[in-house]
Protein backbone atom coordinates (compact mmCIF):
# COMPACT_ATOMS: atom_id res chain seq x y z
CA UNK A 1 0.00 0.00 0.00
CA UNK A 2 1.15 3.53 -0.81
CA UNK A 3 0.21 6.57 1.23
CA UNK A 4 1.35 10.12 0.44
CA UNK A 5 0.13 12.40 3.19
CA UNK A 6 0.74 15.56 5.23
CA UNK A 7 -0.11 13.92 8.52
CA UNK A 8 2.22 12.02 10.82
CA UNK A 9 1.84 8.23 11.15
CA UNK A 10 1.80 5.79 14.04
CA UNK A 11 4.28 3.03 13.16
CA UNK A 12 2.90 0.49 15.61
CA UNK A 13 -0.67 0.89 14.37
CA UNK A 14 0.38 0.72 10.72
CA UNK A 15 2.40 -2.46 11.21
CA UNK A 16 -0.22 -4.21 13.32
CA UNK A 17 -2.95 -3.40 10.78
CA UNK A 18 -1.04 -5.59 8.32
CA UNK A 19 0.37 -8.32 10.59
CA UNK A 20 -3.05 -8.90 12.17
CA UNK A 21 -4.46 -9.78 8.75
CA UNK A 22 -1.85 -12.36 7.82
CA UNK A 23 -0.54 -14.85 10.34
CA UNK A 24 2.08 -16.15 7.87
CA UNK A 25 4.14 -12.98 8.22
CA UNK A 26 7.27 -14.11 10.00
CA UNK A 27 9.45 -11.07 9.46
CA UNK A 28 8.96 -7.33 8.98
CA UNK A 29 11.61 -5.08 7.45
CA UNK A 30 11.35 -1.52 8.64
CA UNK A 31 12.89 1.80 7.65
CA UNK A 32 11.86 5.10 9.20
CA UNK A 33 13.36 8.36 7.95
CA UNK A 34 13.39 11.42 10.20
CA UNK A 35 14.31 15.09 9.72
CA UNK A 36 17.82 15.75 11.09
CA UNK A 37 18.58 19.06 12.77
CA UNK A 38 22.16 19.09 11.40
CA UNK A 39 25.30 20.67 12.77
CA UNK A 40 24.78 23.23 15.56
CA UNK A 41 21.01 22.61 15.38
CA UNK A 42 20.93 24.90 12.37
CA UNK A 43 17.94 23.40 10.58
CA UNK A 44 14.67 25.08 11.58
CA UNK A 45 12.33 23.25 9.24
CA UNK A 46 12.18 21.26 6.05
CA UNK A 47 9.45 21.59 3.44
CA UNK A 48 8.83 18.61 1.20
CA UNK A 49 7.32 19.39 -2.16
CA UNK A 50 6.06 16.66 -4.47
CA UNK A 51 4.34 16.05 -7.79
CA UNK A 52 0.85 14.79 -6.90
CA UNK A 53 -0.35 11.70 -8.78
CA UNK A 54 3.11 11.13 -10.30
CA UNK A 55 4.41 10.54 -6.77
CA UNK A 56 1.84 7.83 -6.11
CA UNK A 57 2.48 6.27 -9.53
CA UNK A 58 6.24 6.20 -9.06
CA UNK A 59 5.97 4.73 -5.57
CA UNK A 60 3.56 2.11 -6.91
CA UNK A 61 6.04 1.19 -9.67
CA UNK A 62 8.93 0.91 -7.21
CA UNK A 63 6.75 -1.16 -4.90
CA UNK A 64 5.77 -3.48 -7.78
CA UNK A 65 9.46 -3.91 -8.62
CA UNK A 66 10.14 -4.99 -5.03
CA UNK A 67 7.24 -7.47 -5.17
CA UNK A 68 8.65 -8.91 -8.41
CA UNK A 69 12.16 -9.33 -6.97
CA UNK A 70 11.35 -10.68 -3.50
CA UNK A 71 8.83 -12.97 -1.95
CA UNK A 72 6.73 -10.45 -0.06
CA UNK A 73 3.41 -11.00 1.63
CA UNK A 74 2.74 -7.27 1.83
CA UNK A 75 4.47 -3.90 1.79
CA UNK A 76 3.71 -0.37 2.93
CA UNK A 77 5.22 2.98 1.99
CA UNK A 78 4.08 6.14 3.76
CA UNK A 79 5.75 9.36 2.60
CA UNK A 80 4.92 12.75 4.07
CA UNK A 81 4.99 16.16 2.38
CA UNK A 82 4.61 19.72 3.65
CA UNK A 83 6.47 21.51 6.41
CA UNK A 84 8.32 19.25 8.86
CA UNK A 85 10.59 19.96 11.81
CA UNK A 86 13.75 18.29 13.20
CA UNK A 87 12.84 14.91 14.67
CA UNK A 88 9.67 14.57 12.61
CA UNK A 89 9.06 11.34 10.72
CA UNK A 90 9.30 11.73 6.92
CA UNK A 91 8.95 8.25 5.52
CA UNK A 92 8.06 4.70 6.52
CA UNK A 93 8.97 1.66 4.45
CA UNK A 94 7.69 -1.64 5.82
CA UNK A 95 8.02 -5.00 4.10
CA UNK A 96 6.43 -8.25 5.24
CA UNK A 97 7.50 -11.78 4.36
CA UNK A 98 7.60 -15.32 5.71
CA UNK A 99 11.33 -15.07 6.39
CA UNK A 100 13.59 -12.13 7.18
CA UNK A 101 15.84 -12.06 4.12
CA UNK A 102 13.08 -11.08 1.68
CA UNK A 103 11.71 -8.43 4.04
CA UNK A 104 15.10 -6.88 4.86
CA UNK A 105 16.43 -6.82 1.29
CA UNK A 106 13.18 -5.48 -0.16
CA UNK A 107 13.06 -2.77 2.51
CA UNK A 108 16.58 -1.57 1.71
CA UNK A 109 15.83 -1.68 -2.02
CA UNK A 110 12.64 0.38 -1.60
CA UNK A 111 14.26 3.19 0.38
CA UNK A 112 17.29 3.23 -1.96
CA UNK A 113 15.10 3.55 -5.04
CA UNK A 114 12.61 6.03 -3.68
CA UNK A 115 15.44 8.41 -2.71
CA UNK A 116 16.20 9.10 -6.36
CA UNK A 117 13.05 7.93 -8.20
CA UNK A 118 10.15 9.43 -6.25
CA UNK A 119 9.34 13.03 -7.20
CA UNK A 120 9.99 14.78 -3.90
CA UNK A 121 12.16 17.83 -3.32
CA UNK A 122 13.33 19.11 0.06
CA UNK A 123 13.69 22.76 0.99
CA UNK A 124 15.81 23.24 4.11
CA UNK A 125 15.09 26.38 6.11
CA UNK A 126 17.65 27.80 8.55
CA UNK A 127 18.61 31.21 9.93
CA UNK A 128 20.85 31.59 6.87
CA UNK A 129 17.89 31.23 4.50
CA UNK A 130 16.36 28.46 2.40
CA UNK A 131 18.22 25.91 0.28
CA UNK A 132 16.96 23.10 -1.92
CA UNK A 133 18.65 19.81 -1.04
CA UNK A 134 20.90 18.54 -3.83
CA UNK A 135 21.07 15.00 -5.15
CA UNK A 136 23.82 13.02 -3.42
CA UNK A 137 26.16 10.72 -5.30
CA UNK A 138 25.97 8.22 -2.45
CA UNK A 139 22.18 8.00 -2.98
CA UNK A 140 22.69 7.40 -6.71
CA UNK A 141 25.26 4.70 -5.96
CA UNK A 142 22.88 3.06 -3.48
CA UNK A 143 20.06 3.03 -6.07
CA UNK A 144 22.34 1.68 -8.80
CA UNK A 145 23.58 -1.25 -6.77
CA UNK A 146 20.20 -3.04 -7.14
Amino acid sequence: MIKVQKDDFDINKEIKKITSLNKNIGGTGLFIGNVREGKNSELKSMTLEHYPIMTERQLEKINNEAKARWNLIDSLIIHRYGKLYPGDQIVLVATFSRHRTDALNACEFLIDWLKTKAPFWKLEESNQGSTWVKERNSDLDAANKW
Binding site: G33, Y51, H79, I90, V91, I111, L114, K115, T116, K117, A118, P119, F120, W121, K122, W132, V133, K134, E135, D139
Partner: peptide, 8 residues
Protein backbone atom coordinates in the same frame (compact mmCIF):
# COMPACT_ATOMS: atom_id res chain seq x y z
CA UNK B 1 10.65 20.22 -15.27
CA UNK B 2 12.48 19.71 -11.99
CA UNK B 3 15.92 19.07 -10.48
CA UNK B 4 17.00 15.53 -9.51
CA UNK B 5 14.55 13.98 -7.06
CA UNK B 6 15.38 13.80 -3.37
CA UNK B 7 12.84 11.56 -1.70
CA UNK B 8 13.11 9.60 1.51
Amino acid sequence: FFPPMTGG
